[in-house]
Nucleic acid binder design. Structure first.
Lengths: 244, 244
DNA sequence: CGTAGGGAAGTTGTAGGACGACTGTCAACC
DNA sequence: GGTTGACAGTCGTCCTACAACTTCCCTACG
C-alpha cells in the first residue's frame, strides 16, 4: 500500500501529479539516468489510476525531463542538470538564480507610469498610448550584476493598490497576486552590443548582452507583461533543451 | 465514420498520431485559436482508442502547440506562428529556413578528419584525441548568409562510407542515414562579438552573432555531434516558447 | 565449460467501456 | 431584462484486459 501524499488542489489530478514528480526529480531524489518507480508502483503510491500516472509521465516526457521506454520503464533524462536552468522553464529569474546555487538580488533603477510606445502596444496587443507601468531593474547574483531588465506592465485591469509593489520584489509574485500569473511567454533571443544598456559601476565594459525579448501571457491568452532582459554575456548560462 | 490515413510506422502509435496532428496544425489546416476535432471525432477519424488520442494531445500540449480545456475542447495555441520557428524544436536549420518561407542553401568551407580537442572530447563524452570529422559551413537563406557553423562528429562507430557525405547536405539527413538521428540537443546560448568567425564576402561587418553551442544526442543518450552555429544577429529570428 | 536458445516475469502501449466534472447554450421563469 | 435551470457536448478519471517489448535467468546443446 504505502498510501500518502494527498495531492490536494484545484487543477487536474494528472497536472498535479506531474508537478509532484517534477519536484521530486528536481530535488535530486532520482539521479539523472535513474529509473523511476513503475507505473503500477506510482498507482499504489498516489492512489490514482494508471491513466493519470501515464498522462503525467507523458507530460514530463514531452518536457524532456523523463524518458519512457516501452517494456523497460521510465528513466530520468540525463539532461536534468541542464534543464534545471533551462530557458524554456518559465519562472522568475531570481528563482532560477537561487536554484543555480547563488544568492539573488535586485536594484530598482526607475519606475514610472506612462503611455505605451507603439512597439509596446503592438507586443501587448493594447491600444497605442494606453497606460503602462515601466520598471528598470538590475538583477544580481551574489552581488554581481547579471542582467538589466526593462519591464512594461499594462495598467488596464491591474489592481491599483498593487502598482506601487511592481518592481520592488519578484515581478512574478506581484503578477500572481494580481491574478494574472504568466503561464506562457514567447521570447525572442538576440545578441546586443550597446554601451547604453546598463548603468552604474557594475555596467559591463564591452557592452555585450544576450537579450531575451519576451511577452508574457496569462493562461487564457492575454498579454500581462512585456519584458526585455539584457543578460550580461558570460555571467549567466542559457540552456535550451531541444527535442523532436 | 470517415475512415482513412493508416498512420503506418514503427514508433508508438500515439507518437505517430502526435506527429500527424502536429503537421496538420503546422500546415495551417487549423488556424491559431481554432478548435480541433473532439477526442471522439479523432478516435473515429484515425481508428485508434481514446487513450492514444489523449496521449498524443497531451504531448502536443506539453510542447505548447495546443491547449486542452476541460469541458470545452482542444484548441490550437495562439503561439503557433512563433513555435513554427521555435528554438526548442530540434530540426535541421535548412528545414526551418524553408518553413519560414525562404530558400535554404549551404556552402562547405572546409572538412577535415582530425583528433578531438579537449573541449570537444568533453562535450561529446569521448576520449581526448579520438578521431572526429570537423566541418565548417555557411548557411544561406535566399542567397544571404544567416549563419556560420562549426560541426564536429565523432568517427567511432560512424559508417566509413558516409564520412565523405558529411557536410555536403543536411547534417541531420546524413546522421539519420548512419542510424544516429539526433533526438535531443542541449544547447547553450551566447552573444558573441568576434570578427574572425565568418568568412568570405558575406561576412557581417559588425561581427555580432548569437551562438548556439549544442551537443546532439541520439535517442539512447549517446552524443552524436557537437555543433557550434553562429547566427548573424538580425538575420535569423530565434523564438522560445516558455511554459510552466 | 561456454554459448545459444527459450521462456517467464516485469513493464509499457493500446483497446473499450463507464461515469464524473466542467463548459457553453438556450429556454423557462421570476 | 436578468437569473436560473436543464441539457448536450466535451474533457478528466477509473476499471479491466490484453498486446508488445525488455530484461533476466535457466535450460539444452555444442
Amino acid at each position: 500500500m504505502t498510501v500518502s501524499t494527498p495531492l490536494g488542489g484545484r487543477t487536474s489530478l494528472s497536472r498535479r501529479l506531474a508537478e509532484e514528480l517534477r519536484s521530486r526529480i528536481m530535488s535530486g531524489e532520482f539521479a539523472p539516468g535513474a529509473r523511476l518507480p513503475s507505473e503500477a508502483e506510482l498507482v499504489r503510491r498516489y492512489q490514482v489510476s494508471r491513466v493519470t500516472v501515464r498522462t503525467a509521465l507523458r507530460t514530463l516526457e514531452a518536457q524532456g525531463l523523463v524518458d519512457v521506454r516501452h517494456g523497460s520503464g521510465s528513466f530520468v533524462s540525463d539532461f536534468g542538470a541542464g534543464i534545471r536552468a533551462g530557458l524554456q522553464e518559465l519562472r522568475s529569474i531570481s528563482e532560477t538564480i537561487r536554484e543555480m546555487g547563488h544568492e539573488p538580488g535586485m536594484e530598482r533603477h526607475s519606475a514610472i507610469r506612462r503611455p505605451a510606445t507603439v512597439v509596446e502596444a503592438g507586443k501587448l496587443g493594447i491600444g497605442a498610448g494606453a497606460g503602462v507601468f515601466a520598471v528598470e531593474r538590475m538583477i544580481l547574483a551574489d552581488g554581481q550584476a547579471v542582467a538589466f531588465s526593462y519591464d512594461v506592465i499594462p495598467l488596464a485591469g491591474f489592481p491599483p493598490e498593487l502598482v506601487d509593489q511592481l518592481g520592488t520584489g519578484s515581478l512574478f509574485a506581484t503578477l500572481a497576486e494580481a491574478g494574472t500569473m504568466p503561464a506562457r511567454a514567447l521570447a525572442e533571443v538576440h545578441a546586443i552590443s550597446d554601451e547604453t544598456i546598463g548603468w552604474g559601476p557594475q555596467r559591463p565594459d564591452p557592452g555585450l548582452y544576450v537579450l531575451l525579448d519576451q511577452v508574457h501571457f496569462s493562461r487564457r491568452g492575454s498579454a500581462v507583461a512585456y519584458c526585455r532582459t539584457y543578460f550580461v554575456e558570460g555571467r549567466f548560462q542559457f540552456v535550451v533543451l531541444r527535442t523532436n
